[in-house]
Amino acid sequence: MIRFEQVTKVYDQKSKPALDSVSLDVDRGEFVFLVGASGSGKSTFIRLVLKEDRATRGGVYVAGQNVANIPSWRVPKLRRGIGVVFQDFRLLPNKSVFANVAFAMQVIGKSRAVIRETIPEVLKTVGLEGKNNRMPHELSGGEQQRVAIARAIVNKPGILLADEPTGNLDPTTSMGIMKVLDKINQNGTTVVMATHDDDIVNTMRKRVVELRDGSVVRDDAQGIYIGEPTTTTAAAG
């Protein structure tokens, strides 16, 4: 589903590359943790998949297609196949839960009937039944993240990218979010989650890819989170 071939990304010629010759394969339906300290290249990985940035060298393939060959007018189509969730939720504060999720469907031209039919289902999937009309500020952090997840999956993307989705949440709430992501994964969606929450990684027992200074240093099938040797990486960030 996602393949990186010798991908290097240099933001600034003078500094070290954010990703250095990274090769990685994520199969359809997989659940992958991307772990590593801040500045290890997790967010760059996500940006490259979305074609928010271009790889300096190497090839990024999404659903078998090299994103470098996608013309700019086709990029929206690429992004419709990918859902994204962030640490800071990014909800629209003046729209209700329903309207926030509906927004993602409206802007790609879904009909009112389809929207009305789909959203209750999705809200049920993320565990927010009956909260259609709540405003974001009336919700807890965990609930807000669920809205964001609902928005990310409402157009049924094949891939869900989560950039530290539990970064702002307490451990109990985080586990709730992980259950939702796991359920989405069970339904066939490929999930890539960048995190440095060791509890979660150790509990879930999924594939773990560890990045350090832009390189893959570990790729375990049912891995655990190994604490960073803080002294060596602190300077790189």
């Binding site: 927004f103 802007v107 790609i108």
Partner: peptide, 8 residues
Amino acid sequence: IMRLVGAS
């Protein structure tokens, strides 16, 4: 958000 969800 429009960009992320693939609005043209």
